[in-house]
């Protein structure tokens, strides 16, 4: 594609405009996070605090056992991501590349699990986890991930459906068994969408709030998201530490995204070639 100067200017101005919308809340959160209590609420709002208090970040981190929370969040995030990658690639492959009896019904069933409102299955699920003795452990947050999630399976299936059928037929004629075809041919092709799923899952689990809230009881088990929410009491919001920890909490996912970008950029077709 040739890019003219005019074209460039238009693209840049649109990019900048969107950036304003996406970035401003972060800037404002940062400004809020380094203000003093008195400055935060003053009106008209100050855009540059008199004395930027970077120590607010340290204070916020130290006000709760965030080291423990960080460790718990890491355990849950890493394990669920591994679980999702293994299970979803298998299941999506099964749905996308084979024809079998009841496939459509089963796939609809799979999709329908995405639509179940969380409120009502939560209490029965709680009872079940309680029966297993899993309440106040990280297990309810981790184990289900090893059985796949509808969202990820669906997403992966859409990518797999878009790969020409000749691929496995050729391999079959060469005598490869079904699992070898999956493992040796398709897994490498799926690098981009699997990276995408990993990124999405990391962010989802990292930020998950209701799951940990319901299944975890004491602070030694808490995750980062719960710690962040603990700055919000019934009557008052501690706005400075909330903003500070929100910004701290986005660092790990952003790092992951920065590394993952490379693989996502390759796309799927890139790896077929």
């Amino acid at each position: 594609m040739k890019i003219t100067r005019k074209h460039k200017i238009i693209v840049y101005s649109i990019l900048v405009l969107f950036s304003l919308y996406f970035l401003f809340p972060f800037i404002w959160a940062f400004i809020t996070a380094i203000k003093s209590e008195a400055e935060v609420f003053s009106f008209p709002p100050k855009f540059v605090p008199d004395v930027p208090l970077l120590s607010n970040f340290i204070d916020a981190w130290n006000s709760q056992p965030f080291g423990t929370y960080f460790k718990n969040s890491m355990i849950v995030t890493v394990l669920t991501t591994i679980g999702q990658l293994i299970s979803c690639s298998l299941v999506a492959y099964g749905f996308a590349r084979y024809d079998f009896k009841y496939k459509n019904i089963l796939f609809m069933l799979l999709l329908s699990t995405m639509m179940i409102p969380w409120d009502v299955t939560m209490i029965p699920l709680y009872m079940e986890f309680n029966m297993f003795g899993w309440i106040n452990t990280l297990k309810p947050l981790i184990v289900p991930a090893f059985f796949g999630s509808a969202y990820n399976i669906f997403l992966l299936r859409q990518f797999l459906m878009n790969i020409p059928k000749d691929l496995e037929n050729a391999a079959r004629i060469d005598g490869a068994n079904e699992f070898q075809i999956f493992y040796k041919i398709f897994l490498p092709i799926m690098k981009a969408p699997l990276t995408l799923i990993a990124v999405l899952n990391i962010i989802l689990v990292w930020n998950d709030y209701l799951g940990p809230l319901i299944y975890l009881n004491d602070q030694s088990k808490y995750t980062m998201a719960l710690g962040l929410a603990s700055f919000q009491g019934v009557h008052e919001l501690q706005i400075i530490p909330i903003m500070a920890m929100t910004l701290v909490m986005i660092i790990p996912p952003v790092i992951v995204f920065a590394f993952a970008q490379k693989y996502i950029v390759e796309g799927i077709s890139g790896s077929i070639k």
Binding site: I123, Y126, I135, L226, Q232, V234
Partner: peptide, 17 residues
């Protein structure tokens, strides 16, 4: 449990825990 105290104890009571 913090700000979502009610949600949390409702779940606990509802599940007999």
């Amino acid at each position: 449990y913090g700000g979502d105290y009610d949600t949390k104890i409702t779940a606990g009571i509802g599940a007999k825990d």
